[in-house]
Design a protein around this nucleic acid. Structure first.
Lengths: 263, 263
DNA sequence: CAGTGGTCTAGACCACAGT
DNA sequence: CTGTGGTCTAGACCACTGC
């Protein structure tokens, strides 16, 4: 890792630093390796630690570095491609290996905003299933799957116990909801993706500090011309690349990862 | 906007501040309104300006605030839903209103990484069309559309002039490539979305400083069992919500925007 | 010109991991 | 314990906007 002076151009120092560091980790370090500590790097480049940290913040946002308190700063592994499935495979993932794990379930009357999003009257009972998604031994996403009672009611199946936590275990209730959803015919789904940050409980599930950037995927499932379920999933933005694959299609290059500029 | 003391809990101050400010802008301010300046807010909450700025950084990342140098900090408008089109509508957008504007075109031999991503031999001629996408009077995305010569060659049409900038205008060349692509039958497309930051030239096109977070959409277009084109689009993460709509589907609630937690 | 956000500094202390 | 990253401070100066 070089020690060249930073030019006195109008570009901010932290951005120049980021570029220098990026080149360094691309050429002189490999995945998982720890880079020199912040105080040393700051000294080496003759900048304050805060300035250096600004550069590292950028690289962490780009998923190139991982910082662990008490340990050091490591070169991150390339992002994992996470298929955002089309619902042909069922509600628990691709069938073969369960990619979603139910961690809880709540049965509560819909608040104003939730009711509006679901297109049901405020106060209607809504089943909210909390799930997490694990890939390569790491929790990469959390999800809140909201199903209004009215959507479930049209399905032929025994009713769930009314109050939460009465009979079965905590997420047993959630799995029951999912089982009933299996019988639902989904006509289509529409999605949106945007940037967000992890709040307290999400951050906890993702094993990250609050404020961690996440990709928020909102999926609306339509059945019989009405909204049957709403899923809000938050994926770790630092480690995930969401993929939307066509079902039957020639599998081309798995990971482009290339210059977005080509003069 | 309140002035309550910040509790001495283990949660970092900047995160508490963010929560307080978020509630404030949700209840006491409206879109486009300027909030008090940083020095005043810092004094009001008894924190250093750097700490306050950390909170504002978070809110800006979430797309809730917009900061303009020399002006102040404004409450941001809700994110615009940007349809990431399925290629049924042609290469220039939905036909009716051109959503993409060609701003340049380069004809160069493929570098190593680009060639690998396109699945062509290194050095093959590649047409790279640079486009920007405008929504609501604002540039929301830039794109580099890479088309290998071999994909274009199979199409019946006159050849383009060999060297760049010889005859027609700069982007006239780009439009010609797009016109020829219209004749291409696309069997399918596969996409991925990840978080990135805008580099120098992208930042310029997006009218944002370098390091601005963007949503990077990579689209691979398949034709006749091979990769025919590769598009890398970068959308402003602060102002965009990418939408992936099913073609014929009941249009449900346009913008959920709700608590992702529902205990 | 005055006021705003943007950058940078030098230093302090804390929380956590590994010894 | 030492060493790491995480937080916070108080102050300085710059770049830009609008009057």
């Amino acid at each position: 890792m070089g020690t060249a002076q930073l030019a006195a151009v109008p570009e901010p120092k932290y951005w120049q630093l980021r570029t220098v560091l990026l080149r360094a980790i691309d050429t002189e370090f490999s995945t998982g390796q720890v880079i020199p500590n912040e105080r040393e790097l700051a000294a080496r480049f003759n900048v304050a630690r805060a300035t250096l940290r600004q550069a590292l913040d950028q690289l962490e946002l780009e998923g190139r570095l991982v910082r662990r308190r008490g340990i050091g700063t490591l070169v991150a592994a390339p992002r994992v491609g996470v298929p955002v499935s089309r619902r042909e495979e069922g509600w628990t993932g691709s069938g073969r290996e369960q990619e979603w794990q139910t961690v809880g379930c709540a049965i509560v009357p819909a608040g104003e905003k939730l009711a509006k999003a679901l297109g049901v009257p405020t106060g209607e009972t809504v089943y909210t299933v909390r799930r997490i998604r694990v890939a390569q031994g790491q929790t990469v996403a959390t999800e809140a799957l909201h199903v209004p009672d009215s959507a479930l009611a049209s399905l032929p199946e025994i009713r769930l116990s009314g109050a939460a936590g009465s009979g079965a275990g905590p997420d047993e209730e959630g799995r029951a909801v999912l089982r009933r959803l299996e019988r639902l015919t989904v006509d289509g789904e529409s999605r949106s993706v945007e940037l967000g940050v992890a709040e307290a409980d999400e951050a906890l599930l993702l094993q990250r500090p609050p404020g961690t950037p996440v990709l928020v995927v909102t999926t609306q499932y339509a059945s019989a011309g009405r909204l049957a379920a709403l899923a809000v999933s938050t994926y770790r933005a630092d480690t995930c690349r969401l993929t939307f694959g066509e079902t039957g299609l020639v599998e081309v290059t798995p990971v482009p990862e290339m210059a977005r500029t080509a003069s």
